[in-house]
Amino acid sequence: MITNPQTGTNVHEIADGIYRISTPVELPGGQPFSFNQYLLVDDEPLLFHTGPRAMFPLVREAVASVMAVERLRYVGLSHVEADECGSLNEWLAVAPTAVPLCSQIAAMVSINDLADRPPRALADGEQLALGRHTVQWFDTPHVPHGWDCGLLMDSATGTFFCGDLFTQPGHGEQALTEADILGPSEAFRQPMDYFAHAPQTATILTRLAQLKPRTLACMHGSAWRGDGSVLLRHLAEAVSAAR
């Protein structure tokens, strides 16, 4: 469903109760790209990634096509970056009971100061019940880049909110694909490698593979359905080989 004809912002349900909000953009030089947010609708709804601040009206419009924005309870971010939390305070303003959801490191070094409301800081492995869905937080320091990085897994649907992992170029016209995303994402990564390549990168990716996700909710490009464990192991191998 296209929610804004001018920009092409669109909403698609990629798993039970999980909606991908996507806006196509052009990077400098005219390269097509996309910014995705994921809305998990439940008793206590969660929005993972806000998009850049300038994109707030588009994302709000898209969320409103699915549920009342005032119901939002959590605004999640993998790490502090404009496309992750640029409009965090705008969301806190329109959703009176919403709080930021982030890692303990992110809360300590950034969100406690940046956000207009204290965050819910999750420890590594901590679970959060939203209703029918329960999400679990995993610290992923420096994977792919920030010290404060962390990612979420929804046990009810097997959806892994994988942030910048598997970033793909293009407008992400296909909301959910079973085609190869590792090849395009690795080709995109090579020219401006945004991985920190920390000593524990492969170990963290292998740990995430043990979650056996069935859907990967990528922040840029199409979401993916299939054997996420295999794909994450292949990513660990590719990143290790690149060092």
Rank of each mutant, 00 (worst) to 15 (best):
F161K: 00
V94T: 05
P96V: 07
D154Y: 08
A107L: 03
T9A: 14
E126D: 02
V80Y: 10
V230Q: 15
Q127P: 13
R225M: 08
F56D: 08
L88S: 10
D139V: 02
H234P: 11
D43R: 12
L47C: 10
D42P: 03
I181H: 07
P32K: 01
P144A: 01
G226F: 10
K212A: 15
M192D: 14
S155G: 14
V11M: 05
L182E: 03
G170S: 06
A187Y: 09
P119I: 05
G163T: 01
H220I: 05
F33Q: 01
A217G: 04
G226K: 09
A223V: 03
L122P: 01
R189A: 08
V25Q: 07
A198P: 09
P5N: 04
V25H: 08
F166P: 05
L77V: 05
L46N: 05
L130S: 00
G29H: 00
M67R: 11
G30V: 00
F35K: 13
S34F: 02
K212H: 15
M67A: 04
S185T: 02
V94G: 12
V66A: 07
A241N: 10
A187I: 12
A54M: 15
V109S: 12
L205T: 01
D154T: 03
L232T: 01
L231H: 07
E26Y: 11
R53N: 15
S110E: 14
F166C: 02
P119L: 03
W224Q: 02
V63H: 06
A236C: 00
P169A: 12
G170F: 07
F195Q: 06
D42H: 05
A242D: 13
H171T: 13
L182Q: 04
Y194Q: 08
E81R: 13
L216C: 03
C85S: 13
P169L: 04
F48C: 06
H171V: 11
A209V: 04
L47S: 09
I111W: 06
P32M: 00
V59P: 10
T167S: 14
F138C: 06
A95H: 06
E186Q: 14
L176S: 01
V143N: 03
A62H: 06
V230R: 14
T3K: 04
N112W: 11
A238D: 10
G146Y: 15
D193C: 11
G183K: 12
R225C: 10
I21E: 09
R73S: 13
H79F: 12
T157L: 06
T140L: 04
D43W: 07
E178H: 15
N89R: 08
D180I: 09
D148F: 10
L151Y: 11
G170Q: 05
Q37N: 14
Y38I: 02
L47N: 09
A196P: 06
L46D: 02
I21W: 05
S22K: 03
D227T: 10
E84F: 15
T203L: 15
P213T: 00
L77A: 13
V69R: 05
P24M: 07
V41T: 12
G17C: 04
C85W: 06
R189D: 03
L47G: 10
F195R: 10
Q210R: 15
R225Q: 14
D193V: 05
